[in-house]
Each structure stands twice: as C-alpha cells, then as structure tokens.
Design a protein around this nucleic acid. Sequence first.
DNA 1: CGCCACCTTACGGAAATCTGTAAAGTATAT
DNA 2: ATATACTTTACAGATTTCCGTAAGGTGGCG
Lengths: 222, 222
Amino acid sequence: MFKKILVSEDFQDTNKGIVNALESRLQVDCIIQEELYCDNTFNRFKTAIAEGTPYELLITDLSFKEGPITRKLTSGQELIKEVRQIDPSINIIVNSMVDDPVEINTLFTEQKINGYVCKGRNGLNELITAIHEVDQNRTYVSPQINLKKANTVFELDEYDLIILKDLADGFTKKEISEKLKKKNVSPNSESTIDKKVSRLFDQFEARNTHHLIAKLIKQGKI
Amino acid sequence: MFKKILVSEDFQDTNKGIVNALESRLQVDCIIQEELYCDNTFNRFKTAIAEGTPYELLITDLSFKEGPITRKLTSGQELIKEVRQIDPSINIIVNSMVDDPVEINTLFTEQKINGYVCKGRNGLNELITAIHEVDQNRTYVSPQINLKKANTVFELDEYDLIILKDLADGFTKKEISEKLKKKNVSPNSESTIDKKVSRLFDQFEARNTHHLIAKLIKQGKI
DNA sequence: CGCCACCTTACGGAAATCTGTAAAGTATAT
DNA sequence: ATATACTTTACAGATTTCCGTAAGGTGGCG
C-alpha cells in the first residue's frame, strides 16, 4: 500500500475531511500531507523527489479558487500536466465535482490519471476504494460516471447549445473553440463555430449575435 | 455553547471534514449529527422537536446534488424555509461556495440566517469562528463577502433601457446613435453609448455585450 | 471667479464579429 | 473507382466592439 500521499484541495473543510478519512482508514505507517494551492503542491512534490522520498499517490481537485497569492498553476489539470512531466509513474486520483464524461475521459486518455472520484454523498468511501484499486494497478471511476457517453457524437442541437450557452456566458468564439478542443469535441475550429452561428442567424432571423442570444433566451431555449 | 448541532452537506468528504473539526474543536458534551439529504435533515429536525430535544444549530450547504432518492427539498434554501416555519428561533449557519453578495444578503434578510461561511481555504476556521459568534447572538459573514454590494441595486434608467433593448434587437451602436439623433435624444454620440455600456459591464460583472444582454434578460430587466 | 467633479465627445489601436471564397476531408451512391 | 453532396477548416477583408487617452462642456461650491 502507498506509504506517502499528497492531497491537493483548496476547500479547507473538504481537505480536512479527506485527510482525516485517510488517516483513520489507511495503514498507520502512511504519510499523508495536504496543500491548499496547486503551486504549493507542485513545489512539495518536486522537493520530495529531490530528497529521494517521492510521493506515491497524488489526490487532487480540479478547480481551485483564486486567492491572495498570485498563481502559476490555476487548475488541477495544469497541476497534473506538470506533475506528469517530472514523474510519469506517479499515481494520480482526481477528486472533483465535475461529472461531464467527456471531460473526465480526457483526463484518463491524455493526462493518464489512475482514478476519478466524483464528489458526492459517497465520495469519501469511493475515494478509499479508488486508492485500493489504484494500489492494485487498476483504474477507478465513480460508478455514476458513464464514460461511454464521452464517445457518442453530439447531436446538432446539443452542439449548438454548447456554443450558444458559452456565447451567452461571455466567451468569445476563439475561447469556445479552445474549450471544445480541450474537451476533445469535434468539430472545434473557430471557423466552423462561425458558420454554425451564422446559419442560426438565418434560421432565427437574427441580425447578429446579440440579437440571436436575446431571442433565444426570451424563447427559453438557452 | 450549543449542545446539539445538525450538519447538512451532501459531499461526504466535506461533511466528514466539518463533523471531525467540530468534534475536536468544540466542547466534548456537544452532540453533532450529520445528514446527506435535505429531506433527511428536515425529518431528523422535526423528530428532535417532537422528542423534546431540539437542535440548537443547523449548519447547511445550499446546493445538493440529485441522488438515487426522490427529493421533496432540493436545496438549502428550501430546507431553511421549512425549518424556519416550525422553529423560528433555531440558529442557522450556511456553509456554501456561493459568493454572490446579493444571494447571500437575501439569506440574511428573508431567511433570517445567523451566519454565512464561504467555502474556501480558510472555510473550516471561519466556520468555527462563526459558531462562536452566533453563540454570542451575533451574526457572522466571511470577510471576503462584501454585503454592501448587495444593497447597491443598479437601477437601469430609461436611457440605459433604450440602448440595451436596441442592442438586444440587433442594432449596432452606430445605428443606435443615429436613431437617438433622429429622436432628438441627447446624449447620442457613439462614444457615449460605448462608455455607458462599458460601465454596465462593470456594474453587472459582464465580460462583453453578449454576456450583459444575457444576464439582464435572465434577470428580467430588459 | 476659479476650482473641481462629472459628463460628453472624438479618436485610435487591438481584438472580435461578420461575410465570402476556396481548399481539403467524408460519406454515399452509382 | 468516380462523381456528388456535404462538412470542416483556413484565410482575408470589412465592420464592429472594446478600451484607453484626451479634449471640451456643464454645473456645483467656496
């Protein structure tokens, strides 16, 4: 079983909840340490390697609030990427409230994480299970997550909705294009998004994006 | 100090984190109980009153995920409303990630909550502080929340409405400027319209015109 | 009157939208 | 295989938005 674990989670209550559970439910000789900031996590991680006592397991959230400290790493995804670069063999379990299969699938295929636990009423129990599974060189995914859905192609309407909702939330088409690429959703070029929205102008007789969004929200379609 | 506390929070890790902290940092003779569902919280609450041993403090989250069980109460807000109806004197502290001053202010003015703790890197410490404050009959709000912002309601005057409605109808700022000139409404320069809308970005925390229009329509202000 | 705060307007540059054209890729039917 | 229709993508330009600076106008106040 793992002897050295690092927990990266910015909410103090959750952080303590995880650490307490690990301390009481794992073997006594396991060192469990915690960080509230991605940057601190990464530094501690590097230091441990330099000192010849590397961590064996990283448990991290994905979303980290802004704080008083200027940050280099602002998300769990970025943290994982950096960590993987300097230690490809480290075990990583993500513990987050994200439940989008597409996004989670990307973590497994690209970031090579070993487990994904979706926060919820059984999250802590699942996390313990995940640790044991990962320790046995198996992967773990919360049962309520259906990764198969990640591979199903979006219907046109659903695709349009993603774009329109993001536009209504103030994202630019370039940003939306980048978000789609990160989620491995295709098509995802700015040009295609442009065309899709232009076609919606015709369809809904809108003069421009402002008009289109206003119409659709008033119609309750977004 | 409170002798009987009920914690309502659907994420198991967070729930345990809170309960563990309370158990170790409050007096030993305090009964702390926990629930993962609003409905269960409410039932336990009613039962305690019926048995003549009511809770003195309720600590609750606002957002509760859907689960396998059909729910009557689906949010902390609904829970608080029901609880207040049968026990107007119960102390309530909300522990949530919501950071919108308007929303939090409503909890104090309408639901008469006694404390609000915003989840974050210091959330658990703040929660302990909040409990002590509420015990002394004072209210508590996380320091990063500026409730004053909640009271500065931004009224849209008639001039703002003309511009916003025209934007939502797909007119460009140049067109709106021309329309105003034709109607002999002043000010009417494109530049002034620009400034007006930019100020509305700040006031309503919108990233761009799409975002602003979407927000205002959703709020029913246009 | 001069000073100050605020509003209006002009202007310019960077970024984003809107529109058209064209090339490349995909799937289907013959 | 080839033709066809459709989708995706790149690119280019004209227009519009976004944001900063600065100049002029207006009204309050000692």
